[in-house]
Nucleic acid binder design. Structure first.
Length: 364
DNA sequence: CACTCGTGGGC
DNA sequence: TGCCCAAGAGT
């Protein structure tokens, strides 16, 4: 057989399914061959897998499933407990939507996930990809599942050189041409597995690919350069001052962030607003939880988010028990009990740094 | 469409 | 080290 042999959609799908039957990966949320996994497990894993790697998700998935084994149990949980369990996984709106979705499915769908893509799409946290994934994997519906893996595989198979995200709809249409009616769940997972393990972003393993003879990108020698992407914007560096205030009994002042926006609902050290210009300590003191002789710790703490970087100076001070909080929603908590709260990685970095440079007062 | 929204691992 | 990006969704 020569390279770039025209192959029918049906034969492409069949070649991929044959490959999947031989190379299928065992994953915590995956059922045994031929068995349909519970929609709750599919949904939970798919939300966690959004923009997140399989090894990281595996641990969170097991812990969630052990603590909340059913949709009903998750719907009955407190939001703060869900955020706490989600701590470190990132994109915390997923946890808020997860919780809201569980309650909505329980209240308006009798505790059962709908099987139709469009109905799934209406649920919080479920977009085009996740709706298709649940429909295909949990209900065996022939939905076209397009994630980052599929975009890459299809862009190479069809030699699409239009850059992303412009090419998104075209890639979806090309993927839909191949989506088979039978074994929809297996096919969807096979295509994503192919992208994750063979048709990788760099150094694709074309010699191990079931579609190697049909791949137009490979035939043209451009597979590895696909998909093309629009240039990304640069990440600006922003600045703030975070306040490490320890009470004489050893408790430190924390606060809960607003439910919407960055790190929504998560716990932080009180901080100035974040802005482009660095802060002067005197200027920052106006935003401090209490008027005190604040001392700046030597090095700022740096943390990267998706679209900007932040450099936070840590200002430390001590105060007496009974002093005013100066802040609504204040949480006085000794460092030994920080683990009871939902601390994002940024807060953990600040805490680790502050505790090292400003060890707690020794209680008499 | 363009922007917001985390984190850790790989090279 | 700096950059890439991973089973995207919401606005």
């Amino acid at each position: 057989m020569s390279a770039s042999q025209p192959a029918s959609p049906a034969s492409l799908a069949q070649m991929l399914l044959d490959w999947y039957d031989r190379h299928r990966r065992r994953l915590p949320w995956r059922a045994a061959p031929g068995v349909r996994p519970a929609p709750y497990r599919v949904w939970l894993s798919e939300i966690m897998l959004q923009q997140t790697t399989v090894p990281v998700v595996a641990g969170y998935f097991r812990r969630f499933l052990e603590r909340w084994p059913t949709l009903e149990s998750l719907a009955g949980a407190e939001l703060d407990d869900v955020l706490h369990a989600w701590q470190g996984l990132g994109y915390y709106a997923r946890a808020r939507n997860l919780h809201a979705c569980a309650r909505l499915v329980l209240a308006e769908h009798g505790g059962r996930f709908p099987a139709e893509e469009n109905a799934l799409r209406d649920l919080p946290g479920i977009g085009r990809y996740t709706a298709a994934a649940i429909a295909a994997i949990a209900f065996d519906r022939p939905a076209t599942v397009v994630d980052g893996n599929v975009e890459r595989v299809i862009a190479r198979l069809r030699a699409v050189d239009t850059p992303l995200p412009q090419a998104k709809n075209a890639l979806y249409a090309l993927a839909a041409e191949i989506t088979p009616e039978a074994r929809a769940g297996d096919y969807a997972q096979a295509l994503m597995d192919l992208g994750a393990s063979v048709c990788t972003p760099r150094n694709p393993g074309c010699l191990a690919c079931p579609w190697q003879n049909a791949c137009e990108g490979r035939a043209q020698g451009i597979a590895e350069s696909l998909p093309r992407r629009a240039p990304k914007r640069e990440r600006p560096l922003r600045h703030g001052v975070s306040f490490w205030l320890m009470r004489s009994d050893g408790a430190v002042l924390l606060r809960r962030r607003p439910d919407e926006g960055l790190l929504g609902g998560m716990i932080e050290l009180p901080t100035t607003p974040w802005r482009d210009e660095p802060w002067d300590l005197a200027e920052a003191s106006a935003h401090a939880p209490q008027p005190l002789p604040w001392q700046a710790l030597p090095e700022p703490v740096r943390h990267g988010f998706t679209h900007f970087e932040i450099e936070l100076l840590v200002a430390a001070a001590e105060t007496e028990e009974g002093a005013a909080d100066g802040d609504d929603g204040a949480i006085w908590c000794p460092p030994s009990r920080f683990s009871e709260h939902a601390l994002p990685t940024l807060t953990r970095k600040l805490v680790r740094y502050a505790a090292r440079h400003r060890p707690g007062l020794v209680r008499k």
